[in-house]
């Protein structure tokens, strides 16, 4: 079967690879000139943190989110299964209690245990939470690895190809364009992020700093870098990072460890997350076109599950009820 997938963000790449793994002849079209341009997933944290995310998200994300960790681990390098550490400043201790109450899969930690996990945070926080089953990856390396695997399975990835699904060739077309699909009820939730170079602070896992107003996370990357993210603004503005957002993110990094004051800000960017009103993704088929959209802040977490559902619909292996839904 000939399938065209449009959009080479995390949704499109996972869907294209899943289809190719199942034997379809896949063409992946991307309007940008290179991998990651304009893709929300290029700016993602890369946390595979279903338990922590379920603090505010529907608990339905937990099972597919856990399965996603294995999916990624089998396909891309350096999936780190070191869990997630959650901390809060002393005066925000109430936030930790609330977070613990609203989540599963975590355990309470005291200062010593925090130091054992993250030596550089020793003596900085008296209480924390640890979610050992969670993981993280480097989104850019992961997307590149998917593109390579797709090629190895005979898939073709073409850049600079903007197409409407109706006009695309193939037996089935999978629309993974995100915001650009302009689906009804789809909105954009703006996110702003920083990448800091700070070899002085070495972290081994994503650390979430709870704060009543500005919760942030810091995710370690290769080469002494960390990603600090991310704001959540109900806006479809795509423009550069605002000063307010930069100050909030930098302040949070500094609150996590004062040595971040000496960090080099190597990147500072804003992106737009596609989201439906319930903040859950949708996979649906209408005639020849399958659409995958609304991954919100859970691109890497939920893309493998969405891709499997999209492939079921595209290849006709889904139950009829699922197609009707």
């Amino acid at each position: 079967m000939q399938v065209t997938v449009i959009g080479a963000g995390v949704a499109g790449l996972t869907t294209a690879l899943t289809l190719a793994e199942r034997g379809a002849a896949v063409t992946l079209l991307e309007r940008s000139a290179s991998l990651g341009d304009n893709a929300a997933s290029w700016l993602a944290g890369g946390m595979l943190a279903p338990f922590c995310e379920a603090e505010t998200a529907d608990p339905a994300i937990i099972a597919p989110g856990l399965a996603a960790i294995d999916w990624w681990n089998a396909r891309v390098p350096n999936v780190q299964r070191g869990g997630t550490l959650v901390v809060a400043a002393g005066r925000d201790a109430g936030e930790l209690k609330r977070f613990a109450r609203r989540t599963t899969g975590g355990e309470a930690l005291e200062a010593d245990a925090i130091g054992a996990l993250e030596a550089d945070l020793a003596d900085r926080f008296r209480h924390g939470l640890y979610y050992p089953a969670e993981a993280h990856l480097d989104p850019r390396a992961a997307l590149q690895a998917l593109a390579d695997r797709l090629a190895a399975h005979g898939g073709v990835l073409t850049f600079g190809a903007a197409t409407e699904p109706e006009n695309a060739a193939g037996d089935v077309v999978v629309d993974c364009r995100g915001i650009a699909a302009g689906a009804p009820a789809l909105r954009s939730v703006r996110g702003e992020m920083l990448v800091l170079l700070c070899p002085e602070v070495r972290l081994h896992r994503p650390v979430r700093l709870l704060h009543p107003r500005i919760p942030v996370y810091v995710v370690p990357r290769e080469g002494g870098r960390v990603m600090v993210g991310a704001t959540m603004v109900e806006s479809d503005a795509a423009g550069p990072v605002t000063l307010r957002a930069a100050v909030e993110l930098m302040n949070a990094a500094y609150a996590l460890h004062p040595a971040f004051a000496e960090a080099e800000v190597v990147e500072m960017r804003a992106g737009r997350r596609p989201a439906f009103p319930d903040n859950l993704p949708r996979v649906a088929r209408n005639g020849r076109i399958v659409s995958v959209n609304g991954l919100y802040r859970h691109g890497f977490l939920l893309a493998p599950d969405c891709a499997a559902r999209a492939a079921d619909l595209a290849l006709g292996t889904a139950k009829v009820s699922e197609i009707a839904a």
Partner: peptide
């Protein structure tokens, strides 16, 4: 919520 005048329209 907006980071711009009309950008939060959908919300």
């Amino acid at each position: 919520e907006a980071a711009g005048e009309r950008a939060g329209r959908k919300f």
